[in-house]
Design a protein around this nucleic acid. Structure first.
Lengths: 118, 118
DNA sequence: TCAATAGTTCTGAATTTCTGAACTACGGAA
DNA sequence: TTCCGTAGTTCAGAAATTCAGAACTATTGA
């Protein structure tokens, strides 16, 4: 298994972020991770929506999110922990993640700790 | 030629907007239209970047932008005029377009007339 | 009526996405 | 140690999407 690639903050490209979040399943996964803060294993996120996401697809989704710079994944023993890189991204692209999650209706009304409201 | 489809504002879906703007060529076209305000013919936008976009591809790009609700196209004689639906979209998804165009580095520093800075 | 211009649709090749099956990595039990 | 179970990755082929040249349509002006 090759080591997980995480782009540096200065290498983030807006097209990759938009592409990653243009899939509602991926957006739901990311919203969950960003909402809960440091969050869950891949398998815990397998049935957020109306279907059970096959694990190979799920793995691909995480790869896309990771390589867009949206999340950071690290292995802890047998499970993978994923957390969002919202605050880093917000420095580079102010307001972007907040606007996207809001558009998806994924942000709670009360202030979210992992996102600066600018 | 079938009539051009423009979604109603309440039918706009964030995934379609993100997808449409996740292509740098389409984003450049949209930025140009949104920046200039009411803007140009398709062919006038054919060589914004490093290559000349084939006209069939260009036509597809416009269709994607149109069906995502980002632009409104109308035929005036032999040419097509396209203008952005930024202000409508901004009511539905506040800050989204501004954040995306800013991330792409496409917004002038001075205030843009077609976008509300909220 | 004809030619020119601007854009759309068609079509097949190339690319991408999806997902079941096989595989790898790690931890714990025996 | 070895074996087993869990968690996730990679492979591979089918399905879907994208790309762009060629053919087509619509409109204007001569």
């Amino acid at each position: 298994m090759r080591p997980l690639f995480h782009p540096a903050i200065e290498d983030l490209r807006p097209e990759a972020i938009l592409y990653a979040l243009s899939d509602p399943e991926r957006a739901a996964i990311f919203a969950q991770i960003a909402g809960v803060g440091s969050s869950g294993t891949c398998s815990a996120l397998a049935c957020l929506g109306e279907r059970i996401i096959p694990k190979s697809s799920l793995s691909q989704h995480f790869k896309v999110l990771r390589e867009a710079g949206l999340i950071r994944s690290e292995r802890h023993g047998v499970v993978m922990s994923n957390h969002s890189r919202c605050s880093e991204i917000d420095k580079r692209f102010p307001g972007l993640i907040l606007a996207i999650l809001t558009a998806y209706g994924r942000l709670p009304v009360e202030r979210n700790e992992t996102l600066e409201t600018q």
